[in-house]
Design a protein around this nucleic acid. Structure first.
Lengths: 257, 257
DNA sequence: TAAAATTGTTCCCGTCTTGGGAACCTTTAA
DNA sequence: TTAAAGGTTCCCAAGACGGGAACAATTTTA
């Protein structure tokens, strides 16, 4: 019974949490001053002040007219993170390629904290607008990316994630129980690809295939489009063929990381 | 005599600095464990451990097989930062547009900490490869973006930045004294655009114009290409015209932020 | 232009967080 | 199976940190 979430014990560093709270607020508000932050986070002005100084020293924030805001340093960090994904360049080029080919939204996601995080997203002129954006986390049970990844994770990890899920019906089609999900994963293993038929957002269908390196799943790649344009025929034909081909290319180019 | 750098006094929070150091190491190394980090940063394992727990709690880092790495949460933060730049969408679309038009590298930069930080970069198929990447900081005296911005910053800020500059001859053409720089800024003000003629990197020429909102400079937009392709004629003709047009469009679309 | 109000900065103090050492547990290597 | 290395926990003493209040700077109002 490995139900217990691991990350429990151990000490946390309060001042670091304060600093991260400041960063969070700046992320949301975009701009804030000492007094505002002090009110907002329920700390004294002097405390906030020292923290801001520390963050400014490290060039993470910038003093603007009306307060402090996050600096572009963050963008630099993000670039580093991307480049640390050994095969980011290949992933990006394949994702972009698929957009040219299909005109729909194409995304690459990996598993983090039991959810799917988007590593790269590309869209064409006619692509539908969605809320998803790079770095964002989405449930695994309601997305094709998530289900594709879940299918090929080590069995115990898959179980652990499923056990900790809090199912929420995002649409009438959303899978909302471990049993259904297990059945779906079996189906995916047979097909080799995962479908999201309006399970996460009404009117949108997606298809995804895992990208693997031997036994380990690196992530998954998906195509998303409006149900009107993504017919059953196109989904299981052209699109299925396209994602799988892209996934293969990425896999082939990953033998060196 | 406003030579003194401001950000001096005030307390710094040690534990936050430790946490940021950890993040820095993970950024560089890509992956690291408790023991490694402890050695690397000269702290006890227990200290590092608590910090990692804190960062993991906040989903900033992820425990991988061989240690911890930064999570995609950083990408999400970067997206937020971008979107906080009121007119990011317009900037991006204009930059991308210029790439289609010219085939060269196009960048948008803003001033931070007396340097230019790249907010967006786009390149075409045939564009030259450069080291610059989004979020990176470059000197203002050796880049067209920097000089363009410097020309239109409030006079005291411009002076402050110039005073604090440590000139380094990146090539034989680099401006290396405040006097030369002032002359150059005057020239730029007359022309309306700034040129970098192999001053930052050998073989590369750039042209940049500021993007302003009334009296304040929001940033600058630039085109970069190999000297072979970027002739005097093209530089002062087609390219000058193109950047200025793009800058104008961005300015027009900024009247609402 | 002066006064008032708001925000930002500095200083000091007492507490409790935090860093470190060592022991313990877990995983990997031999 | 043992050894070695990494990861986790526990406890302690020191000094870092959060808070309050006074001070300085900036903005607003009249």
């Amino acid at each position: 019974m490995a139900n217990t979430h691991k990350t429990d014990g151990g000490r946390r560093i309060q001042s670091v949490e304060i600093a991260l709270n400041i960063i969070d607020v700046l992320q949301e508000e975009g701009q804030s001053g000492v007094t505002d932050l002090a009110r907002n986070l329920d700390h004294s002005k002097s405390t906030i002040h020292s923290h801001l100084r520390t963050l400014e020293d490290r060039k993470l924030i910038v003093k603007k007219d009306a307060g402090y805001r996050l600096s572009l340093q963050i963008l630099s960090m993000a670039e580093n993170v991307k480049n640390q994904v050994g095969n980011y360049d290949v992933i990006k080029s394949q994702v972009d390629e698929l957009v040219d080919e299909t005109g729909e939204i194409v995304q690459f996601g990996i598993e983090e904290y039991g959810k799917v995080s988007y590593l790269h997203k590309a869209m064409g002129e006619q692509s539908v607008e969605t809320v998803s954006q790079v770095g964002m986390r989405q449930p695994m049970y309601s997305t094709s990316l998530g289900k594709a990844i879940l299918t090929y994770l080590p069995e115990d990890r898959t179980e652990e994630i499923i056990q900790s899920m809090e199912f929420e019906a995002k649409t009438s089609e959303t899978i909302t129980s471990p049993t259904e999900l297990h059945e779906e994963l079996n189906r995916i293993e047979e097909n080799g690809y995962a479908i999201d038929d309006e399970e996460n957002i009404n009117g949108l269908r997606c298809i995804a295939t895992p990208v693997r390196d031997g036994e380990t799943v690196l992530g998954a790649i998906s195509i998303t489009g409006p149900s009107s344009r993504v017919t059953d025929e196109r989904l299981h034909g052209e699109l299925a063929e396209a994602v799988q081909r892209a996934a293969n290319i990425i896999e082939l180019n990953t033998k060196f990381s």
